[in-house]
């Protein structure tokens, strides 16, 4: 295998996971929290694909593709919720709305 070993990819993935987790824990905007959740899921994907390479087993890649679909679905639902909430309180300042669940 050319380039760095699988372990290097895993460290990257771990850092990405921690970054995403931190994002969920410290940000107040639900939009950014959703983005941070995507980071966490992608970190999982990176680990899956790195391990798939290590074991030369395509199962991990299949898993990653499935995760991608799930991540997309979560985004759709999350965005739908945010839109519904913003609709619900058109008269309110959206800052207050985002603060609600931030």
């Amino acid at each position: 295998m050319l380039g760095p070993t699988v372990a290097a990819y895993l460290v990257l993935s771990a850092i990405l996971f921690a970054t995403g987790a931190a994002g969920v824990l410290i940000r107040r905007s639900p939009l950014i929290v959703l983005l941070a959740l995507e980071l966490m899921l992608n970190a999982g994907n990176l680990a899956l694909i790195a391990f798939a390479r290590q074991h030369a087993d395509s199962g991990g890649q299949v898993f990653a593709l499935a995760v991608m679909v799930v991540a997309a679905t979560e985004v759709v639902v999350g965005l739908g919720l945010i839109v519904a909430m913003s609709r619900k309180k058109v008269e309110l300042d959206v800052d207050a709305l985002t603060e609600l669940e931030g």
């Binding site: 895993l10 996971f17 999982g44 391990f51």
Partner: peptide, 8 residues
Amino acid sequence: FGAALVYG
């Protein structure tokens, strides 16, 4: 992430 590690 846990599933990925177990898989790994």
